[in-house]
């Protein structure tokens, strides 16, 4: 059994997989262990140099594997190698969603896509505190906006381009428990291991203008149409604690359940004085 470590990096894995494939080593003879190593694997040597075989695979496959590689979970890398092996052997159905193996591959791609969508949607920037530049040690200017996000899969790397497009020349910092990114308006600095100073900066700090968004959120919702199940389905609970509006949700739901369902008006607005309009 060959035991490999790719440091959860797709490029390293691809190099390893290519070499294994060229030597014709079957998936059952190789395992990818995390940093701790596989307890039961008796490590065998990886054959040196490129082997004699040069199998060809369909052009779409590398992209598909790269997508699925962002997925964090059991058998993260072994499954990819198994798909690659089967397709290289001529069984193209292994990469199609209808087959046994392909179904799992596509499930992972879908999960990753969903999580990418989540980071686009639920990440929140807040204006950075004064003196952020020194804390973060990212050059002279320092970020204007910072965000903390906890994705379930490795999607930050791919999501950076999205935020570069949105934010123009603004300087921003995104920190997660694993990786981090800083954009200074021109160049992106991506760290696979997020510096502690970045994490600290992204998590702390107060936000004096945050109240506007909360006021908007409270009033946008129609108590007469209460449907907390749909909310849960679209916006999983694990994101709530990092969303500014998250803490408002339980109170809004219970208010609506306790009789606010009569009409659509928000409570704060109902308290204000009304006014009829003259006929112009």
């Amino acid at each position: 059994m060959i035991s490999l470590d790719c440091g959860d990096c797709f490029d390293i894995w691809r190099g390893q997989a290519r070499q294994l494939l060229s030597h014709g080593i079957a998936p059952c003879a190789v395992t990818w262990a995390g940093a701790g190593g596989d307890l039961f694997a008796s490590a065998g040597p990886m054959p040196l140099g490129q082997g004699p075989r040069q199998p060809r695979v369909p052009a779409q496959l590398p992209g598909l594997l790269c997508q699925a590689a962002r997925y964090r979970g059991e058998q993260r890398w072994s499954l990819l190698y198994e798909v690659l092996w089967r397709v290289a052997q001529g069984d193209r159905s292994a990469m199609l969603a209808g087959s046994d193996l392909g179904s799992e591959l596509h499930r992972r791609v879908k999960q990753v896509r969903r999580e990418t969508h989540h980071i686009h949607a639920f990440l929140r920037f807040v204006p950075a505190a004064e003196g952020a530049a020194e804390d973060a040690a990212v050059g002279a200017a320092g970020p204007q906006f910072v965000a903390w996000h906890e994705p379930a899969h490795d999607v930050l790397g791919d999501a950076c381009e999205h935020f570069i497009g949105r934010m123009g020349q603004a300087r921003w910092l995104i920190a997660t428990p694993r990786d981090g990114a800083y954009y200074d308006g021109q160049t992106l600095q991506y760290q696979r291991h997020c510096p502690a100073a970045w994490q600290h900066l992204a998590q702390g700090g107060d936000d004096p203008d945050g109240g506007l968004w909360l006021a908007y959120y409270r009033n946008l919702f129609n108590p007469a149409r209460l449907n907390p199940k749909a909310l849960q389905g679209h916006m999983p609970g694990r994101f709530w604690k990092h969303l500014p509006e998250g803490p408002l949700i339980p109170a809004l739901v219970s208010d609506a359940q306790l009789g606010k369902r009569r009409d659509g008006q928000a409570r704060e607005v109902a308290r204000l004085k009304g006014k009829r309009v003259g006929k112009g």
């Binding site: 949607a121 449907n227 907390p228 749909a230 809004l252 739901v253």
Partner: peptide, 15 residues
């Protein structure tokens, strides 16, 4: 992009 959802299960995409 749906940036948030309100308790009526509707998407918040725009101001």
């Amino acid at each position: 992009i749906c940036h948030s959802y309100t308790p009526d299960g509707r998407c918040v995409s725009l101001l």
